[in-house]
């Protein structure tokens, strides 16, 4: 029983990373209809940025978190204006390919700049563990859960309580309608990209001290985040959050009870089964666009 509770706890903390990635993906997808394949690699870049700020420049971890998030936001802005804005009217497949090219650039750049050997992101509390009764969790994992909760609340307030957030939601719901209402759709698209990549940045720096850094570390979480979006229903941030937590728990249970090697295979299998029998996900609207 205690084992199960521990696995659930691990799963939730892992799921929080997916929550941040998946909500960023959902926001970008809602506006641009592009599955941003580079999202996982942006998260990897952020983790390395945090690593170098803390380890090489002895920066405070929290300052590094803020700076790396801003840096990723600016990177998102550049990516939007130099890559996705010029081809906004091209067939959607071209946008997929562009996102894939970004993934290749980020992975290749990381391999070149950071090398293939894994790195430890060490902060003062890296090795500390918080124990309550028989349950225990790395302190950094607790910070991940707390940080994700704060960020998601802020995101929710931003979307629901500010006019910019309302414009974002309106554009995601109906692009032409938003244009007719006088919303500057291209600015909102840029903002969506900035918010989406900044979320990946937060995820990367939050999880960095709890995992090993390597240039390919983004691919697994990216695919799980996509699975979570499909599981929860595309286009709904709430669905993405719930899907992420569920898949985080599934991954943790699968590695605990079945096999740690194949835990990701279970997650993808769930995604494929979900697509087969309920393609619109748990809370999704229609899957096919005309």
């Amino acid at each position: 029983m205690i084992e199960l509770a521990q696995y659930l706890l691990n799963g939730i903390s892992q799921g929080c990373v997916y929550v941040l990635l998946a909500s960023g993906l959902t926001i970008i997808f809602g506006i641009l209809n592009v599955p941003n394949f580079a999202q996982g690699h942006l998260y990897m870049v952020a983790a390395y940025l945090g690593f170098y700020m803390v380890m090489s420049y002895a920066m405070n971890y929290w300052l590094a978190l803020v700076l790396a998030t801003f840096a990723l936001g600016i990177l998102g802005l550049l990516v939007y204006f130099f890559v996705f804005y010029p081809i906004r009217n091209a067939p959607e497949v071209n946008l997929f390919v562009a996102a894939m090219a970004l993934l290749m650039i980020l992975e290749g750049g990381a391999l070149f700049l950071f090398g293939t050997e894994t790195k430890w992101f060490l902060i003062p509390w890296s090795r500390s563990v918080l124990s309550v009764g028989n349950l225990s969790l790395q302190v950094q994992r607790v910070i991940v859960i707390a940080g994700t909760t704060v960020v998601m609340l802020a995101l929710w307030l931003f979307i629901k309580r500010t006019s910019l957030g309302a414009a974002l939601e309106a554009t995601a719901q109906h692009r032409e309608g938003a244009l007719l209402c006088g919303i500057k759709v291209s600015r909102i698209s840029a903002m969506a990209f900035v918010v989406g990549t900044a979320l990946a940045g937060i995820a990367g720096v939050l999880i960095g001290p709890a995992v090993l850094l390597e240039p390919t570390m983004g691919m697994g979480p990216l695919l799980v985040a996509f699975s979570a979006i499909i599981f929860g229903g595309l286009g709904s941030v709430a669905g993405a959050v719930l899907g992420s937590v569920i898949l985080g728990v599934v991954e943790s249970l699968a590695s605990g009870y079945i096999s740690a090697t194949y835990n990701l295979a279970f997650v993808f299998a769930i995604m494929i089964i979900m697509l087969l029998f309920r393609p619109k996900g748990l809370f999704g609207k229609e899957v096919w666009r005309p």
Binding site: T261, P279, R289
Partner: peptide, 28 residues
Amino acid sequence: IPALKLRGPYFVLVTLGFAAIVGVIVLG
């Protein structure tokens, strides 16, 4: 059979997920 029922981004994602599963199995 399952993948081609889907279109656009969904199809792309399933092919990528399948490639990832094969990669995991080959390593594991």
